[in-house]
Amino acid sequence: MKVIVVAGTPGAGKTSVLLNTIKFLKEQQVKIAVAKIDCLYTEDQIRFKKTDVPTMIGLSRDMCPDHYTIYNMGEMVSFAREHTADMLIVETAGLCHRCAPYTTNGLGVCVIDATTGPNTPLKVGPFLSTANVVAITKGDMISQAEREIFRERVMEMNAGCRIIETNGLTGKGTAELAGCFAEAPVFNYSEDHLRHNAPFSICTLCVGEMHIEKKYHRGVLRHINGVQEYKGE
């Protein structure tokens, strides 16, 4: 199975861009499952369900949302398997600029809003710099010159990425993005690692743990079914 992890700042247009891409992939007979992670509240499942793909939601509550995403990756993959999906698309809450929930064999997709100004790519950190694909949204709201400067700044932060100019409203960039999704490598839950360490702080990921398998995690952990527990001394 392929796992696509989509990160980006709130309001950047992650869901709109994904809805177009899912519609396109479905027409190509790709079987998709979606997991939407948020912190406190989401109603995006209603939008995803309209595309008729199996959708799971998770709210991280007291846990760091990116750690929550990684911690529950096993459940999300199982959910996708139960629905015989070829591709799991994980849309993250995307609040913290410090870390990125991309794994070594997942496709990391950063969705970034061009109207936030050309300094944004310099500020957002690993979810841009370690992404495979950077989808720039809302380019129609700014001049061609500003678009070109924004693009240059993205390249400065992540020279090897594939940049796609997208538009959630018109569907611009959809075919190209769908092509990247289709070419993603095969994900391996027990062997995949995070690409970038999280901040040095209080949880096991925060202190540098890179394994994603459940048995390695300590601290306050929240399961996707809502059960929260403390593991450790």
């Binding site: 050309p118 700014i142 010159a145 500003e146 070109e148 400067i149 240059e152």
Partner: peptide, 23 residues
């Protein structure tokens, strides 16, 4: 030349033109 009537980038005219020339 699109229909946009305003710039959103927070920089001076000079910085903008230099950056664009570089791009």
């Amino acid at each position: 030349l699109s229909q946009n009537m305003n710039f959103l980038a927070d920089m001076t005219v000079r910085e903008f033109l230099l950056l664009h020339a570089k791009c």
